[in-house]
Simulated assay, not measured.
Amino acid sequence: MRKELVDELVELAADPAASRSALGLSAAQDAEIARNAALWTSPTMPALHRYTGVLYDALDAGSLRGAGAARARERLAVGSALFGLLRADDPVPAYRLSAGSALPSGGTLASRWKPVLEPELGAVAATDLVVDLRSGSYASLGRVPGAVTVTVLAERPDGSRSVVSHFNKAHKGRLARVLATTRAEPRDAAGVAAIARRAGMRVERKADALEIVLPA
Rank of each mutant, 00 (worst) to 15 (best):
V92N: 05
R96M: 10
L97H: 01
G100R: 07
S101V: 00
S101P: 00
A102R: 15
L103F: 10
L103Q: 06
P104Q: 13
P104A: 10
S105H: 07
S105T: 05
T108C: 05
T108P: 00
T108R: 09
L109E: 01
S111N: 06
R112G: 02
R112Y: 04
W113G: 00
K114N: 04
K114C: 03
V116A: 13
V116D: 08
E118A: 11
E118C: 04
E118P: 00
P119L: 08
E120C: 00
E120P: 00
G122V: 02
G122H: 05
A123T: 00
V124K: 04
A125S: 11
A125N: 03
A126F: 06
D128V: 00
L129D: 04
D132Y: 08
R134E: 03
G136E: 15
G136A: 14
S137L: 12
S137K: 13
A139S: 14
L141A: 10
L141Y: 11
R143C: 05
V144K: 05
P145D: 15
G146V: 07
V148T: 05
T149D: 15
T151F: 12
T151Q: 15
T151G: 12
V152K: 14
V152I: 08
A154C: 10
A154M: 10
E155C: 11
R156E: 03
P157Q: 15
P157H: 11
D158Y: 01
G159S: 08
S162H: 14
V163C: 11
V164Y: 07
V164E: 12
S165H: 14
S165T: 14
S165R: 15
H166W: 14
H166A: 12
H166S: 12
H166I: 05
F167L: 13
N168K: 11
K169H: 15
K169G: 09
A170G: 12
A170W: 08
H171A: 12
K172N: 07
K172M: 09
G173C: 07
G173I: 05
G173F: 10
R174M: 12
A176V: 01
R177H: 06
V178D: 02
V178T: 05
L179R: 05
A180W: 03
T181H: 02
T181N: 03
T181S: 05
T182A: 11
T182E: 09
P186I: 03
P186Y: 09
P186Q: 10
R187L: 13
R187I: 03
D188G: 07
D188V: 05
A189F: 04
A189G: 03
G191A: 12
G191V: 02
V192K: 02
A194E: 13
I195E: 09
I195F: 02
